[in-house]
Computed example of a mutant assay.
Amino acid sequence: MRHDRPVNASESLLRVATVGGAQGLRGEVRLAVHTDDPETRLAPGTSLQTEPPAAGPLTIADLSHRGKHWYVRFEGVTDRTAAEGTRGVVLLAEPLNDVEEDAWYPHELAGLRAETPDGEHLGEVEGIRHLPAQDVLILREHTGERTLVPFVRAIVPTVDVAGGRVIIDAPLGLLAGSDVPDDEDPEQGEDR
């Protein structure tokens, strides 16, 4: 699934990275990358909008990849103090024109009807949240409860934007009211 997604449904810009801590003394910062193509999205010379808007735009002066991490220097940010001032800033870019299979933006998911594989109504998707381990759908169940549903193919096998629905094949206990029935005692073993 695509990681560089709009920050919220009202925005058309995509979240491509979040600035982390300063590295060294010359203004370099480590990034938490949210895009599948950092070399293109964060290429030197690229100017990016920011969240908060007052922090930018920021232009990439240099990009490097060392070990598992990406690092950048921004034009005009030449020392550690200035680099620390960019910590927590979200870098935003326009969507690419390419269309990936299994790639959806939050504004496409919000409002979709959630159903079981058998067609039972579960509720409505309110949006998506990007967590460190994986993305989760925010589901407002028909009972009124909010549930975070892991946005993985095993649990959300179908996203049908054109049809206005998602299929959620939730494991027992994930959704409200889907607890283990009272007549089943997990402590009790078989009679021998």
Rank of each mutant, 00 (worst) to 15 (best):
V156T: 14
P106H: 04
E120G: 04
L112F: 05
T147N: 07
R165N: 07
T81G: 08
E84R: 15
I167R: 12
L131P: 00
F151M: 08
I128F: 04
Q188G: 05
G177C: 06
F74L: 12
G119V: 05
V125P: 05
G164N: 12
D185N: 15
R87F: 10
T158K: 11
P157M: 04
E124Q: 13
A133P: 00
I128N: 00
V149D: 03
L131Q: 09
T143E: 06
E115N: 07
A133L: 14
I138R: 06
E184G: 00
L122V: 06
D102R: 11
I128E: 09
H130V: 02
E115W: 00
D98M: 07
D182Y: 04
H107N: 13
E94H: 04
V159G: 09
H130M: 06
E94S: 03
F151E: 00
A133D: 11
G177L: 03
P186W: 10
I167E: 02
V125Q: 06
L92V: 04
D135P: 00
D179L: 13
L92P: 07
E120L: 05
T116R: 15
E184C: 02
G177T: 01
R113T: 12
E115R: 11
L172M: 14
G127E: 07
T143L: 07
D118V: 04
I155A: 06
L96C: 00
D185Q: 13
V161D: 05
L172V: 15
V166K: 08
